[in-house]
Computed example of a mutant assay.
Amino acid sequence: MFLKLTFSYDGSKFQGSATQPHKLSVQDTLAQALSHLGIYDKPLFASRTDKGVHAFNAVACIKTGEYFKDFVYLKNKINHFAHPFIHIKRIQKVQENFQVRFDVQKRAYRYIISHEKYNPFLASYVHFYPEINIKLAKEIIHLFEGEHDFKLFQKEGSDNKTSIRMMYKTRVYTYKNYTIFYFEANGFLRSQIRMMMASILKVLEGKMSQNELLEQINAKKAHCRFLAPASGLYLSKISYYNNA
């Protein structure tokens, strides 16, 4: 049978989510945990994240024998071997034709900025940055909404068939002494959000104009090719058609 796993992970402890020759990825670590339970097929992931990027609700699909009836027991057993940096939150049975990557309707990410004094113990989990103009930040982030060719917001070496993506929703809000940026789209290019965040911060700093940002959004001219730190980025949610 096929099972859908929803899980979180601490990206600072891995060399990215996708399998690596050195076996230090989230996918490799989860596969090793599953192998202790006699599940040897490699888990298939819905999304890839860069080194240092975290996940609240990542999704994977695994194939198992029919003998795993108690999903709560299975979840606890996987967590026994996957902890402390990967945690299975939920297990659901899905149809055999379920495509964990290609059936995705929306992906959502959050980028967390802290305005507190620098703390080395939190440096892997937020991006420390001075106070920002929240009203201006809301104006800037809304420029990304709609369908665009985001080819100037992807890391070099990407091999996507198309760089056109639909950005359904953006949002900026504050919580205590944090500012959180939210992005929801049908998909994201390699390092796209980190490059978008670097561009947003550059506009907030007055080092780039909104018109220049629009030129880059409209794929006319690149004005910022930097990446914001991975530490502040979290895969927040993955939604499927038919609520799979």
Rank of each mutant, 00 (worst) to 15 (best):
N97A: 00
E96H: 07
T49I: 08
V203F: 15
L37T: 12
K63V: 05
H22Q: 03
K63R: 12
T162Y: 14
T174Q: 14
T64V: 13
G187Y: 11
I88A: 08
Q99K: 15
L5S: 11
C61Y: 03
K161R: 08
M1E: 14
F45R: 02
A198D: 05
E205Y: 13
L44D: 06
R48K: 14
N242P: 11
V100D: 01
V26S: 13
L34C: 08
Y40C: 07
K51Y: 06
V100S: 00
I217G: 08
M166A: 04
F121T: 09
Y118L: 09
G16Q: 02
P21V: 07
Q210F: 07
Y175N: 14
K23L: 15
Q95H: 11
N177Y: 03
E145Y: 08
N211T: 03
P43Y: 04
F144D: 04
A219W: 01
E145M: 04
L30D: 06
K42R: 14
R101W: 12
Y111C: 10
I180Y: 13
R107C: 01
F7I: 03
E184N: 10
D41F: 06
P130K: 10
N211I: 07
S12T: 11
F226W: 13
K63C: 07
E205D: 12
N218W: 12
H223T: 03
K207E: 08
T162L: 10
V72I: 15
K202A: 04
H148R: 11
K155R: 13
F14M: 03
I217P: 10
E156T: 15
E66H: 08
N211D: 12
I164Y: 12
F14W: 08
F102G: 00
R90Y: 00
V126Q: 06
N242I: 05
K202L: 09
V104I: 09
F14Q: 04
A222H: 12
D10R: 09
K106D: 12
P229T: 12
A18N: 03
F56G: 00
N97T: 11
G52K: 00
V100I: 15
F102E: 01
T6W: 00
K77F: 15
F181M: 00
K13W: 08
Q95C: 13
E147K: 14
T29Q: 11
N242E: 10
Q92N: 12
F121P: 01
Y240S: 02
E147T: 14
Y125I: 12
A60I: 11
C224K: 01
I200F: 13
K202N: 10
Y240A: 03
R90T: 09
Y234V: 10
F102T: 04
M167Q: 06
L189M: 10
D70F: 09
G65R: 14
D70A: 06
K221C: 07
K237R: 15
Y111D: 04
N57H: 09
S17H: 07
F85N: 04
S12Q: 05
H148A: 01
F45V: 00
